[in-house]
Design a protein around this nucleic acid. Structure first.
Length: 680
RNA sequence: GGAAAGGUAGCUCAGCUGGUUAGAGCACGGCACUCAUAAUGCCGGGGUCGAGGGUUCGAGUCCCUCCCUUUCCA
């Protein structure tokens, strides 16, 4: 089979908030497909980028008192940390606020303009006079003109579903300043989508889109393709449009071009042929994985823009549903808004990758993370069935000298397994991972049945039959190796450990299972996976101690860790504890913070240095009480920017209900302690 | 408001173009086994397939109405 050259993307994470498990459904789905392609021997590239532009980012940076560049740098770092934690194997992670992206945004724009696909029209929009800017629909709220529900967004009513423009709202206010927006006119640039209807229809006809996506497209065609406003007025964080000073590209114009920009950066690094991947007539494959909320952009605008600019169109746009937790939409108040970071603090990535895979079909159905089911499924399938095959057989190999037997006692059974490879590959290729997992687990049952029937533990009791026991174990371990190879895209962590055990390269090729492993020495069996502890899994939906996406400083300080469930924490090792740099610190100065009734600003002496720390203890301690006393602090907590300044650590307190309300109590140290002494 | 997907055993889900007594895994009960991370194997109980109509020799599977869930709407 010829090697396919494939470029894959998933949606770009927006630089305004933490990744949550909903994002990871998409990342995991995409990453499994990419790893599967590589396992099959195809040349598969996977690129992504931080999505950096737009009003929300501009506003958020203003609120945080930092530049948009600082905001997106922090966000990109957080996002990449989380992706790495879930073993998402990008070849390159770029940024839409990059020179490459500017270059291609301009190039595509000019190409579209040259062919007359860009029109200019004056439109009226809500304008906030105090903030001095036009307001996106989402930044205007007011009473629904139809049903009278208060506090609705400027584009549609959540209660009755009516759609309208911000000007239709009753009592409209700007969410930025609370003032009443006025209408102001401005010239905008429009991409004339309608020009490309025939091209789009032709593309769709040759594209294997999911039926539900196709149905949605038909609906849009039916309604008529409308021009797309691709410009926004200053102030805006983005790329200024070359021939329209004071106008910027709408974030959704340059975001998908970020796929190109990211690839261009990768191509420069590796010397890849850019045109072979992006220019019209390219024979490589281009696959986008996206959520159903953005299919309009990816199945209409994007192919039309690409085509209009002389670029190739996607080979596939693969749309998935959303994630619910325990049957309900993720919700911060219910605690089911689980960030990627929070998950990784508690659990390894492979179990969740497995669970998502076990539920992902190729449709747009939402998938549910049911925590009880998650625990049971992973423990039963991955540990009880799959890993069990290896762990129950390994001792017989070790007792017999550590080498696999020279022949399989039951080659027919082995063949029965490998005969399923093509069918399973087809399921992975078609992104029906749930189907693939079902088949694989059925075979895992079969392998355990085999071991049960052969009873190697009985054979091994007779020294003369130890060799037979080894043969049985060799057979089973080879069956395990076949299953593990197929599951390697889903379980990269476990697969890596298993490969360390069976030998480098033994799980790296889909077709490598054609020949069994025989007569070779294998390593000492390592623990491949551990069972999930339901108590820890439950903590996923406990109120997180520190929200990653920090809202206002005051709100954050006010938030108290939930302590109604006494001691229900996961067990940590000494290494985890060692990560904390706890120090005794002497308070040199303490002052109330203007504008906050909770915070005190402390200057702490750590011996070698001084730290500025904000602490939410103003209700319990007066500044005068504190000067000169010792406190316990975490010295290696990442500095946190607050409205009032940067906090360089955290002072530890005991807190909880006491007579007459909530109490906060500082920790003390015994006499003789010097500033900066380490606590362990 | 328009639209999509879904509602099948306690839980999570399979059931293709309608056809013998509706399936799997988990959970539950019993037995076996003790090699394995209290893992595994065998057997079993458990479903009026959301509700009500209709088409058909025959419907979980097609049609209509209604209810519920999730989601999308540039």
């Amino acid at each position: 089979m010829p090697v396919r050259r494939i470029l894959v993307t998933h949606a770009l994470p927006y630089a305004n908030g933490a990744l949550h498990l909903g994002h990871m459904v998409e990342s995991v789905q995409t990453d499994i497909w990419v790893r599967f392609q590589r396992l099959r021997g195809n040349d598969c590239l996977f690129v992504c980028a931080e999505d950096c532009h737009g009003t929300p980012i501009m506003i958020r940076a203003q609120q945080d008192g930092i530049t948009p560049e600082q905001l997106i740098a922090t966000s990109a770092a957080d996002h990449q940390r989380d992706y790495a934690g879930f073993a998402i194997g990008f070849d390159h992670f770029h940024s839409t606020h990059s020179e490459e992206n500017r270059h291609y945004s301009y190039e595509l724009y000019h190409a579209l303009a040259r062919r007359g696909a860009i029109a200019r029209r004056t439109i009226e929009q809500a304008y906030d006079e105090q903030a001095g800017m036009f307001l996106p629909d989402r930044f205007v709220r007011g009473t629904c003109p139809r049903c009278g529900t208060p506090d609705q967004y400027g584009d549609s009513c959540e209660s009755c579903g009516a759609t309208y423009s911000p000007a239709d709202l009753k009592d409209a206010v700007s969410t930025l300043t609370g003032t009443k927006p006025v209408l102001r006119s401005s010239e905008h640039l429009f991409f004339q989508l309608g020009q490309f209807e025939q091209d789009l229809r032709e593309w769709l006809a040759n594209n294997n889109l999911q039926p539900a996506v196709r149905a949605k497209l038909d609906e849009w065609f039916e309604a008529g393709l409308k021009d797309w406003d691709i410009s926004r007025d200053a102030p805006y964080f983005g790329f200024e449009i070359p021939d329209a000073p004071g106008k910027y590209f709408y974030v959704w114009f340059d975001a998908p071009i970020g796929y190109i920009g990211s690839f261009a950066a990768l191509a420069a690094k590796r010397g890849l042929d850019f045109d072979a991947y992006w220019k019209a007539g390219a024979t490589t494959e281009l696959h986008h994985f996206i959520g159903k909320d953005i299919s309009y952009f990816h199945t209409l605008f994007w192919p039309a823009v690409l085509h209009g600019a002389g670029y190739r169109r996607p080979t596939g746009v693969h749309v998935h549903g959303f994630l619910t937790v325990d049957g309900q939409k993720m919700s911060k108040s219910r605690g089911t808004f689980i960030t990627a970071q929070r998950y990784l603090e508690l659990l390894p990535a492979d179990p969740l990758r497995y669970y998502f895979a076990a539920k992902l079909g190729n449709g747009l159905d939402d998938i549910d993370l049911n925590l009880g089911d998650f625990t049971a499924r992973v423990n039963s399938d991955v540990v009880g069935k799959l890993v069990n095959i290896a762990s129950r057989c390994a001792p017989f190999i070790e007792r017999a000298g550590g080498e696999l037997a020279d022949a399989l006692p039951d080659p027919a059974l082995y063949q029965q397994f490998t005969a399923a490879a093509d069918g399973i590959a087809a399921l992975f290729e078609n992104r029906d991972y749930a189907g693939a997992i079902r088949e694989i687990m059925q075979l895992a049952d079969r392998a355990n049945q085999y071991v049960d029937q052969q009873k190697p533990w009985v054979l091994a009791k007779d020294p003369a039959k130890l060799d037979e026991a080894r043969s049985v174990a060799t057979e089973a371990i080879n069956l395990f190796r076949v299953l593990m190879t197929w599951l390697a895209p889903v379980l990269p962590g476990i697969a890596a450990k298993a490969e360390g055990w069976l030998g480098a390269g033994t799980l790296s090729h889909w077709d490598g299972t054609g020949e069994p492993l025989l007569g070779i020495a294998i390593g000492k069996y390592p623990q491949l996976a551990t069972r999930l502890d339901p108590v820890v899994v439950k903590q996923l939906v406990a109120t997180p101690p520190a929200p990653a996406a920090a809202p206002s400083a005051a709100a954050k300080v006010a938030a108290k860790p939930a302590q109604d469930k006494p001691v229900e924490k996961s067990v940590i090792g000494i290494d985890d504890f060692a990560k904390l740099d706890l120090r005794a610190a002497k308070v040199l100065a303490a002052a109330r913070v203007e504008g906050s009734d909770k915070l005190l600003q402390l200057t702490l002496d750590l011996g070698a240095e001084q730290r500025n720390v904000f602490s939410g203890i103003a209700a319990s301690y007066a500044p005068e009480q504190l000067v000169g006393r010792f406190v316990v602090m975490i010295a290696n907590l990442a500095p946190r920017k607050m409205r009032f300044g940067v906090s360089e650590g955290m002072v530890l307190c005991a807190s909880g209900p006491k007579e007459g309300g909530e109490g906060v109590f500082l920790l003390d140290v015994d006499a003789g302690v010097q500033p900066g002494m380490k606590i362990s």
